[in-house]
Computed example of a mutant assay.
Amino acid sequence: RRLGVTLLTRTSRSVQLTPAGRVLLEDGRRALAALDAAATRARRAARTPARLVCVTKPGGDAGLLEPTLARFAALPDAVEVDVLVCGIGEQEGLLRDGTADVAMLHLPYDDTTGLDSERLLVEEQVAVLPRAHRLAGRPAVRMADLAGETLPRYLPDQPGGGPLIREAAQLAQLVTLGRTIAVLPASARPQLPDTLVTVPVLDAAPTTLLVAWPEQSRSTALAAFVRTALEVARRAAAPA
């Protein structure tokens, strides 16, 4: 009544949300989750000494996190940074629930709604194949060449019949055994075992590596960390 809109429709047999009701429910859930996350981060910020928590999946930083941590640690007002290496696809949730202060996320796979972010790197993708695969000797492939191949799933509700992947080592083992192939950012190459080969996928959509943090954060340490990550990314992209 206070909103001036109808949130529910009632019949003798059921109660259903209206479109306005669904919006209020979804936004309300996000607001409550954000409040819980803010409380978690506030408790962490009150600890002495101050520290940040950065979350990334294995190999999900394109080699930028190590130099970022080193340069950040050299700043006069730097704080300690704890690095949380999570399972594949978990970093966004750990940032949203307050476990982490900052995360390495990837577009188009992660949802940045309600987060602030800066782009660090845009990169092409490669097919990850076992050495005996029919395409392993190609200089490059297209997505059509991968038609009919078993591709992994990274979320339980993701369509497809491929294996559900939680860890990078699990994915590498299944590709080695010929149970699946994968399409990954090119920066994943150094993390792969020598039982696998990578082939550029010419028409795969590029991926974007982001450094992301809670919307409207006022942490000066977090702002300094983000600036450092951007500087490291710019240096890495500069011609030698």
Rank of each mutant, 00 (worst) to 15 (best):
R1M: 13
R2Y: 04
L3N: 08
V5C: 07
V5E: 15
T6Q: 15
T6W: 15
L7Q: 04
L7R: 13
L8E: 13
R10S: 08
T11N: 07
S12G: 10
V15E: 03
Q16M: 02
P19Q: 05
E26A: 15
D27T: 14
G28T: 11
A31N: 09
A33F: 09
D36C: 03
A38Y: 02
A39M: 04
R41E: 00
A42H: 13
A42Y: 09
R43F: 07
A45Y: 09
A46T: 05
R47F: 06
P49Y: 04
V53I: 11
V53L: 04
K57R: 10
K57Y: 01
G60C: 02
A62T: 01
E66Y: 10
T68V: 07
T68P: 01
A70I: 08
A74E: 09
P76D: 06
V79I: 12
E80T: 14
V81L: 03
V81G: 04
L84P: 05
L84Y: 10
I88W: 03
Q91D: 12
E92V: 07
G93V: 04
L94W: 12
L95E: 01
G98P: 01
A103L: 05
Y109N: 03
D110M: 02
D111I: 14
T112Y: 06
L115S: 06
E118R: 15
E118N: 03
V122T: 15
V122A: 15
E124D: 14
Q125D: 00
P130Q: 05
A132T: 14
A132C: 10
H133C: 04
R134G: 02
R134S: 09
L135I: 04
R138L: 05
V141N: 03
D145Q: 08
A147R: 15
G148S: 12
L151C: 12
Y154D: 00
Y154S: 06
L155Q: 14
G161L: 01
G162C: 04
L164K: 10
L164P: 11
L164T: 01
L164Y: 03
R166F: 06
A168G: 05
A168E: 12
A168S: 09
A168W: 02
A169Q: 11
Q170I: 03
L171S: 03
L177V: 02
L177Q: 15
L177H: 06
A182V: 08
V183C: 07
V183G: 00
A186W: 03
S187M: 02
A188L: 10
P190E: 06
L192H: 08
L192T: 00
L192N: 02
D194N: 13
D194Y: 07
T195F: 10
L196E: 11
T198C: 14
V201Y: 00
L202H: 01
L202D: 13
P206I: 11
T207M: 15
V211P: 00
P214H: 04
A221N: 02
A223H: 13
A223M: 01
A224L: 08
A224D: 11
V226L: 08
V226N: 06
V226C: 07
E231Q: 15
E231S: 14
E231L: 14
R234H: 12
R235C: 06
A240I: 08
